[in-house]
Design a protein around this nucleic acid. Sequence first.
DNA 1: GCCGTTTTCGGCCCGACTGTTTTCAGTCG
Length: 586
Amino acid sequence: MAGELPTNAEIADRFALLGDLLEIEGAVRHRVLAYRRAAARVRSTPASVAAMAVAGRATDLPDIGATLQSKIAELTETGTIAALDAIRERVPEGLAAIAGLEGIGPKRAVALWRDLGVTDVEQLAQAVADGRLGEVSGFGPATRDRLVEQLAQRAARGADHAERIPLGRALPLAEEIAADLRAAVPGARVEVAGSLRRGRESVHDIDIVAATDRPAALQDALAANTAVERVLSRGDAAMAVATHVGVRIELAIGPPGSFGNLLQHATGSAAHNVRLRELAVRRGLSVSQHGIAGPEGTAAMADEDGVYAALGLAPIPPELREDAGEIEAAQSGPLEPLVALPDIRGELHSHTTWSDGTLGVTAMVEAARALGYGYLAISDHSRSLAMAGGLDADRVRRQWEEIDEENARRSDITVLKATEVDILADGRIDFDDELLAGFDWVTASIHSALTQDAERITRRVLAAVESPFVDTIGHPTGRMLGRRDAAPVDIGRLAEAAARTGTLLEINGQPRRLDLDSQMARRALAAGARLTIGADAHSAEALGYIRFGVLVARRAGARPDQVANTAEWPALAAARAGRLRAAGLY
DNA sequence: GCCGTTTTCGGCCCGACTGTTTTCAGTCG
């Protein structure tokens, strides 16, 4: 690590491991929690925490005190943390992975170590195979079966962490199941909660909450849903099931009168809820899914805003509930409104059969019109993206003729001559300025040479930002969830340049992209840049991907006025003309 | 280990379910 600052993820991993090993060793619980909190805080901090620690500023972050700051500085300077090295001498590191298995925790991991000498998952698998598990107290047949299953799965798909499924798949599934439950028990109030409601880009479980006086009927309906593989647990108020797609569903049920408390509770995040309950305790109150208990008894809230109001807080949108300062903000007054789906007035990123879309211009326009949009940008690929049938100048001009005809036929929506033009490997734009000048809207994107080093790829995207003809940078990092990491584009420099030139940065709503992600979008906004939200639609249904982009924007804290396509086309066109005039064109 | 409308010590969020227990500990969210 000589010369290089440790990344936030590296620092967080070490703190998390330290916390795990301390827990196994039997350290005071709150000390363990302090390490975990610190790990989460470091992981979610956008700036380099190592640099902050070296400057003595890491303690500005919540959950980081003098002790942990010095440990971060130590890691930065020496490449190691003595306290971590020391505990590794005392507690085998492999026990942390064992304790991480479902149904196993620190206590049982220690029992395995003590009674069988098992110190890692491989040895545990051997012990299970040898039938030695029965020698350990606390391990009955059910625990053994669960372990056998997990170890088999682990062997099949590799040792790495549990499966997460993308928002774009999980949210529709969750909504389908919620609808099924509503149909099964008329009158029941059923909502999707948890990390899905907060708009996380991928989730490892689906949380659903319900209010009904017939809880058993609702639980039966979930158990009978065709998506459900088997019931994992079932009590009076909570139930968990496994689905065929591998994601777990948790259903929590309560009475209608406290639905607000239950929804708030199940929406989380865990860190947000903990912070909220701590705040409540300081006021002599106790918050749970059942209500808010105080000296005068327990008050139940039918809606969520009531929960926050009872704690002296303004309402907090689910997407912001990550303990990232939202509670403090809500203490001092109403939060600024976040962009919402109905604010979106048009789509700036779509494809047709002219390149790699599945529908023609007319069909896409009809679909956009059905969504109530005032405009649709037909932004097919440019010539260099041959794989996607990119258009050359000649085909562009023929497409413009079709768009002119489309506009001549209708007055209910404006069809924009647009392009998603490639930013070539050397930073040039795939079309010349003369052609670019003819478009109504230009999105420029990187699709190739994504493995360039940070400096090259950043300069390449910056070159496009500086072009007066480019309105938006499409999916700025080129990442594909689960397939390809973000290219190392320097978001700080990109945002600064975009703020200066007025070039917009896209949040691409395609579920596999979600690019910019919410953290990068937040940084871009902080630098003064503005955004577009695009569906990158290749079909009519895919226009609906805009909702995922809106969720990302909300997690970034974007106001409606910070998202360009909340404006009607005439306003957008006027702003664009202003940019071009400022650049000395027209 | 962090932190302060309980300020530099003594607290630290709340509840559900399972399995193995013989009344509850461990784990999870």
